[in-house]
Design a protein around this nucleic acid. Structure first.
Lengths: 338, 338
DNA sequence: TTGTAGGCGTTATCAA
DNA sequence: TTGATAACGCCTACAA
């Protein structure tokens, strides 16, 4: 029997004042109403004594605001989104908002349902790393402030905060040629709706500007077959000056695991690098050189952007200049594998 | 300007029926009210057309249920809680509930505030891995169904689902003596309120039953000083047949990193093991032998237990037999470091 | 300095 | 087979 929380009415009854008085005192809204210090003290005391806690449901119904922000990411177990959420949460909490975290598992239908549910529960804004192009349409239609992170929603004038993936690829490519690698294989996860992957590839190609450099791209499914793994190993051992680049933390992890299980020596037999950093990359031996994202900055920018939109929609000034497209610079972390 | 969703009233207006009719049709609550197929179809069509979405706030105010479940963990970035949440979420979603995820950062005050906030927003139940002994008191007082996971709330008759930590320690200890190790150091994080750590130690001691076996325990703060790290290295190199056991994934990671940076060879110079598994443990070379938890099962049991309590409190049958204490068995994963 | 009344969206109870 | 009404807890324009 969930003990029903005391309402504003009960506090008022016990303090011998009208509920509205309680509301104003507890919310410190004294613009047009000033109360005697005695009353204020009494009301606060009673509220404390009764353990009064405002009902968000009531408040939301009245004000239309939930003070909740939705976050939809494709995968909550990846280090990147993990950290992102952690930073976002810290920032968000400080402003009184709370996070409603959702995980689409890279599944378009699940994403749709999740968003629909969020809209139903009520959110004041949404931060999304979309795994589907269309799922956010309903959020836009509902007029809820929206920011995409990591993966942009191409052609949808939604503000975006993410990595400069071209630059990330270039950085890696340039380092590769500096180290004398010529044959490079980029390994990508099978995510046709993730526009960051072709961009990273494109950057990689742009960075690999030297006589006879070759870039090959291959997709590695989540449950890779021996055939697919062999393809990578064959590439790695076929020629000298060969390097493999994982385009995401997951692919980097799995490729590294594969190369090692085949007894290949890194970086002697083959070079190895990755885009996105993760703890294991520095623990393994040889440690893996990676391109890291400024995750905290990403989270901060995304929330600042969202907050601005929320405040604007409140003022109904609707200066929908929502063409913010923020690209942050990556950082190369040199370790031992390249 | 967040477009206000159509309400049940607007659907009713357009479909020429009373709001309550809409409500019952959309909720399929036809026990005492049967409507003509024509009306039903029309209402559903209009709802669809208008893009009607029920307002959780209104519903909550009326029913007292939020269909939200709080999850409070000390650290969202640890692999263990990560996976736990992932599994929990999948299970919870299927029953119509949603997760409100909170991260206390091992901070008692933050935990208090979080819980207070959750109570204010309204949750139908709470799954908590407490980092403080008292913070859950307010949840109990509020009469909200509660289950602790991982870390039990000692002496508080709150249902618990967690690992059999004694058994986990024993398993590790037994393997240690089988492999001929005699001098063992257990490395723990500085978490005085985590009762699983002493239990893991206790089990370890119980497992180390052999002539001349020695168990030493040391705490490793989050930002370890050189002195603390040297202490570990000195222990590792002082005598033969020495092994180090990380009591959590974090300590295991850091100790391994430290041993390696000091050029120690594992397992030749020193053995290394850990309680709790994590991806990096199998990627490093030598791979780390660990005790793994049945995380998915943990999440399932915890939710089943919570759901039962929620349904019971609803029926107000209040058979508060809440003395469930569920301990799951660990699994030893032999790799190369021991 | 305090009170009053209305309504946010929903559903349960009662009536027709 | 359908409708009317009240109430959940809160906030706020308006009145005293």
């Amino acid at each position: 029997m969930a003990i029903s929380n005391p309402s504003i009415a009960e506090v008022g009854r016990k303090a011998k004042v009208h509920p509205s008085t309680v509301s104003r005192i507890l919310n410190k809204s004294f613009e047009s109403h000033r109360y005697s210090a005695k009353t204020v003290a009494r009301v606060i005391a009673v509220a404390q004594e009764l353990g009064y806690r405002p009902s968000q449901a009531g408040r939301t119904l009245r004000t239309g605001k939930t003070m909740q922000i939705g976050v939809l990411v494709p995968d909550i177990t990846s280090v990147f989104f993990n950290q992102f959420i952690k930073h976002l949460e810290k920032k968000v909490w400080a402003t009184g908002y709370r996070l409603l975290i959702c995980c689409s598992n890279e599944n378009a239908q699940q994403e749709q349902e999740y968003l629909s549910d969020l809209l139903s529960r009520g959110i004041d804004g949404l931060v999304v790393a979309p795994s589907d192009t269309q799922s956010c349409q309903q959020v836009i239609t509902a007029g809820i402030p929206l920011v995409s992170v990591d993966r942009p929603l191409l052609g949808m004038t939604v503000p975006h905060v993410g990595l400069d993936n071209i630059e990330a690829g270039q950085m890696m490519g340039q380092h590769l040629i500096e180290m004398g690698y010529k044959h490079v294989m980029a390994v990508a996860p099978c995510l046709p709706n993730d526009p960051t992957l072709p961009q990273r590839c494109k950057g990689l190609a742009q960075g690999l500007v030297t006589e006879g450099a070759v870039l090959k791209t291959v997709e590695l499914p989540s449950e890779a077959t021996d055939e697919q793994l062999n393809k990578i190993v064959n590439f790695a051992t076929a020629k000298p000056h060969t390097a493999i680049v994982g385009l995401t933390e997951d692919t980097t992890f799995r490729v590294y695991e594969c190369l090692r299980s085949h007894g290949l020596s890194i970086p002697d037999d083959v070079g190895m690098g990755g885009i996105d950093d993760f703890p294991a990359a520095r623990l393994v031996c040889p440690a893996i050189s990676v391109i890291a994202q400024p995750i905290e900055q990403l989270a901060h920018k995304a929330f600042e952007c969202l907050l601005e939109m929320i405040n604007e929609t409140e003022k109904a000034s609707s200066t929908i200049e929502s063409s913010i497209y923020c690209q942050l610079s990556p950082e190369f972390i040199r370790r031992e594998s390249l």
